[in-house]
């Protein structure tokens, strides 16, 4: 049995495949996040019970969608490292001839994937519950932009923070305490972009373009920094 130094991409694929295989066997993160998302929709239903005009809901829905995504992702992120810790499997990864940034990239990818799956279920439900009454603007499809950019950013910075908090006391609360202020700029930009895309007003590009530019800028800067600093965080 001989070994050659595996390519970084092979290692990335191996790690990602492990996460996916494990998740589709236990469905731990997906069920938790899915149920939580549905429950949040129920809460929104109660919160919006007295909102009569459909336009009001349309105006708010950008914010509501992002509230849903942020809190649901928090739930998933805290779980994403629990099984790496359970029997010390993360230590085995650190002992392997493996660049630590590959661990970051694969974990961020799997988090992104699971988050996307939950969004694919939760967002149509959101539409079904709240937006069927109000006609969608023709610019509706443009919400895809902030959704993709926002989810990528959440998965990236969230993976770094989840790595930090996994070994701490009271990790669930701590992750929220660190995560929400840090992603505030991204959240703000994504909410603005999503809202204008849903409303489809004439001046849409005035808000949409700077929002998206800043959200993309945030993603690039933050993921780069997380990627650079990940070695320090994961190996102590």
């Amino acid at each position: 049995m001989n070994s050659t130094r595996p390519s970084t991409f092979t290692q990335y694929r191996t790690l990602l495949a492990k996460d996916i295989r494990r998740e589709f066997r236990t469905r731990e993160m997906l069920t938790a996040m899915g149920i939580y998302a549905v429950l949040m929709l129920v809460v929104f239903g109660a919160a919006l019970a007295t909102t009569v005009a459909a336009f009001d809901i349309l105006q708010m829905s950008g914010g509501l969608i992002w509230a849903l995504i942020v809190f649901t992702s928090l739930l998933g992120l805290t779980r994403s490292f629990s099984y790496e810790k359970e029997e010390g499997a993360l230590e085995a990864l650190l002992l392997a001839p493996l660049d630590r940034s590959v661990i970051f990239l694969s974990k961020a990818s799997s988090n992104l994937l699971f988050l996307a799956v939950v969004e694919l279920i939760a967002l149509p439900l959101f539409y079904f519950f709240f937006l069927t009454g109000s006609g969608l603007a023709p610019t509706f499809w443009m919400t895809l932009g902030p959704l993709i950019v926002g989810t990528v950013g959440i998965a990236g910075i969230g993976t770094l923070l989840a790595t930090i908090t996994m070994g701490t006391r009271g990790k669930d609360v701590l992750l929220a305490v660190l995560f929400i202020p840090l992603i505030f700029p991204l959240l703000y930009a994504c909410v603005c972009a999503t809202t204008v895309a849903l409303l489809g007003s004439e001046m849409i590009m005035d808000t949409y373009v700077p929002s998206m530019a800043l959200a993309i800028g945030y993603d690039v800067v933050m993921i780069l920094v997380s990627w650079l600093l990940y070695d320090f965080v994961v190996s102590v």
């Binding site: 049995m1 001989n2 070994s3 050659t4 130094r5 595996p6 092979t10 290692q11 191996t14 790690l15 492990k18 295989r21 494990r22 066997r25 236990t26 099984y83 359970e86 029997e87 010390g88 499997a89 230590e91 085995a92 990864l93 392997a96 001839p97 493996l98």
Partner: peptide
């Protein structure tokens, strides 16, 4: 501690490690 993934099978755990080390 075992450094293994409890929710993977014995074979999956070993194959995973072998891939990580680039075994042929």
């Amino acid at each position: 501690r075992s450094l293994l993934y409890p929710d993977l099978t014995a074979e999956e755990n070993l194959e995973f490690t072998a891939r990580l080390y680039g075994m042929s």
